Computed example of a mutant assay.
Amino acid sequence: MGGYHAGSRAVQDLAGVRERADHVGRSLGQDIKPVAAAFLGIQPLLVVGAADPGTGRVWASPLAGAPGFARATGARQMSVAGGPPPADPLAAALATPGTPVGTIALDPRTRRRMRLNGRLRPTARGFAVTADQVFSNCPKYIQRRAGYETVDRAPGRPRRGGEMSSEQREFIAAADTFFLATVHDRGADTSHRGGNPGFVRAVSPRVLTWPDYPGNAMFLTLGNLRTDPRAGVLFLDWTSGTALQLTGEAHTTFGPDGGRTVRFTVTEVLERAAAVPLRWSAPEYSPANPEPAR
């Protein structure tokens, strides 16, 4: 399958799912189909992952706007109006022509998600991405939120550090969703991870761990990490709009029972209060969520 590189193939073989991956991989395309374009056009949130061109560190950043701010403007092009604030760690990457980016639009109202990966070019109103991969995933592990409202918020001053504070670790312990940006020699990808609160753990001020729940068998994310451990993690407070962004390296451990655990070591932390002008309703947890290990 042309959409898989050696890292994904290696993880598929370790998991014994190559045949299934070949079948599922047929969904990897370059065109934005009409149903995907319609889905994208009604989303108020887009998460973008990329490597900062100056430091090489990988980050995941939230972008928000009125529905239509991110939209398909061609069979293989997505255009985004606006961009991140200057303090965002991806501000330079999203202004650099040719930057490989991975994007994900996730709709908690319908438990649907769409990923579009490609190359970026700045535009007068924001940026555009020429798609290399466009695909949707199943609703597994997405928490349903019935709706949202747009809130007029003044973003707080960014707080930077080299490790997580006790308050940030508590924030993570209560999280039911996060986004994970990864890269490889041909591009970037941003994926979603979800579970009941407690599924991701801050085991120390500089280390996160989480189980890799069974998914679509493509192993795009773990495949990327196998060839390049750089990664970015984004946690959102779906009520207050706070964004907690971490960059570092992630490695996967395969257990004797076939289970997988990811260990993420933090290099830098950035917290921005009121970063997203959206207030979502309380979650209804996905019935697919396993109970977190104690």
Rank of each mutant, 00 (worst) to 15 (best):
G29N: 08
R157H: 08
R169D: 08
A91L: 10
G198N: 01
P214A: 03
N196A: 13
P256E: 15
T252K: 04
P290Q: 01
P122N: 04
A15K: 07
K33F: 14
V203Y: 07
L270D: 05
G56A: 00
G118K: 09
L14C: 05
R20K: 15
P290S: 03
G68N: 07
A174W: 15
Y141T: 04
V207D: 11
A36G: 12
G255V: 12
W280V: 04
R226E: 12
R121V: 14
P292V: 06
L40H: 02
R109I: 08
Y285S: 06
N224W: 04
R121Q: 15
L234D: 09
V17D: 04
E167V: 14
R186L: 15
T265D: 09
G187M: 08
R157W: 11
F179G: 04
G187I: 08
N224E: 03
R272G: 05
F69G: 00
A202Q: 13
R18K: 06
F235D: 06
D13L: 15
V35L: 11
T209G: 02
P108G: 03
P229Q: 06
L208K: 00
L225F: 00
S79W: 14
R263C: 04
V24R: 06
A21P: 02
N137C: 00
A243L: 13
V269D: 03
D22W: 14
R109P: 10
G102L: 06
R160C: 09
D176M: 02
L180T: 10
A21R: 09
A274T: 15
P197H: 03
A92L: 10
L45Q: 02
G49P: 01
Q77S: 11
P97M: 02
P86I: 11
G83F: 12
R294P: 13
P287Q: 03
Y141K: 01
G41Y: 10
P211L: 10
A293R: 13
N117H: 04
L208T: 06
P277M: 07
V24N: 03
T227S: 02
A21C: 02
R159N: 08
G54Y: 11
P139V: 11
P277D: 12
R272L: 13
R121L: 11
A64K: 01
Q168H: 08
C138R: 01
P290V: 07
R144Y: 14
G258V: 05
Y141D: 03
V17G: 00
A64D: 04
E249F: 10
A288M: 15
Q77K: 13
A217E: 15
T267V: 13
R26W: 13
T55R: 02
R125F: 15
R119E: 14
V203F: 08
P85Q: 07
R145P: 04
S8G: 04
L225N: 01
T253W: 14
V266M: 05
Q30H: 14
T253D: 15
V183R: 00
G255C: 15
R115E: 07
D185W: 12
L222A: 07
W280L: 06
G41R: 09
L270E: 12
I104S: 05
G98Q: 05
R76Y: 14
A217T: 15
G7C: 02
T252Q: 07
T221S: 00
G74L: 11
G194S: 05
L45F: 08
Q12L: 08
T96N: 06
Q143H: 11
P85G: 04
A105Q: 09
T110W: 07
G74T: 07
Q30W: 13
A75Q: 13
